[in-house]
Design a protein around this nucleic acid. Structure first.
Length: 258
DNA sequence: ATGGTAGCGCTGCTA
């Protein structure tokens, strides 16, 4: 089973590229972030025509998450449920069971700048994600949490650690929030396969960052240990960041045996 | 070179 994640930065603009990508990448499951659509504007029929069931959780304009699957979708839920969401009103979390796996598509708040209320609420949101996992899942489950985490887990996950000093995405509290997720029972399955630097998923549109190699690895696949044991291959599809009207993020593919 | 681009939507915000 091929499970994937992609921050598309507007599904309205990106739909032709997503359709093309579905046909050559042949994913079984796709987690999307930043669709920037309302549920009523979500192009369910376009995906259906390509053989995918889909579910979407969106408010329009900003945020928005979706899950596509060609192996069935059941037990859909969105948001943190009973847990008080520090970004209430934003559509940032969607879960569904597909192909025997509990799949979660997540769009972690950006945080804007250290010391702002947005940064504080980003940390709180990551705490809620941990609490939601501990109350809705078990480390022995086959669970995959994929999405745009807006945190680079380590120094090797940014093009130049010195350039990021004092910035969001690399601070100790953000990294500690991710460590807490892993300590509950999740594995960064891409990093487990590849230890080298410069394996990025995001490049700012500005200043030629993509072509200059100035990126970050902030789109992650966190899987419970039973599922992580089934990972056979992983890839960041940098080709999808090239050409006309790309997203600023590249999609990531994870192949599971059986 | 003290910046730059993209998307939303119509003025400036968000990333």
């Amino acid at each position: 089973m091929r499970i994937t994640t992609w921050n598309v930065n507007s599904l309205k603009v990106r739909l032709p590229r997503v359709e093309e990508w579905l046909q050559y990448a042949q994913p079984d499951v796709v987690c999307l972030q930043e669709t920037k659509l309302s549920d009523s504007a979500f192009p369910q029929l376009a995906f259906s025509a390509l053989g995918y069931e889909s579910v979407h959780y969106g408010q329009g304009r900003w945020n928005g998450v979706a899950i596509l699957s060609r192996v069935g979708i059941e037990d859909v839920s969105h948001g943190f449920g009973d847990i008080d969401d520090p970004y209430a009103g934003d559509a940032r979390l969607l879960a569904a069971t597909t192909g025997g796996v509990r799949v979660v598509s997540a769009y972690v708040p950006n945080g804007r700048a250290v010391g702002t209320e947005f940064y504080d609420r980003k940390l709180a949101w990551l705490g809620c994600l941990h609490d939601w996992l501990t109350t809705h899942a078990d480390p022995s489950d086959d669970l995959a949490l994929l999405g745009d985490f807006n945190v680079a887990p380590e120094g090797r996950d940014v093009w130049d650690p010195k350039a990021f000093e004092g910035s969001t995405h690399v601070t100790e509290p953000e990294r500690a929030a991710l460590t807490r997720l892993r300590e509950w029972g999740l594995v960064d399955v891409f990093r487990r396969l590849y230890s080298q630097e410069r394996l990025f998923t995001y490049w700012d549109y500005r200043a030629g960052d993509f072509h200059e190699g100035r990126g970050m690895r902030i789109d992650l696949a966190y899987m419970t240990k039973p599922l992580a044991e089934r990972v056979r291959f992983a890839l960041i599809d940098r080709n999808a960041r090239k050409g006309k009207q790309p997203s600023d993020h590249a999609p990531m593919l994870i192949d599971l045996e059986a």
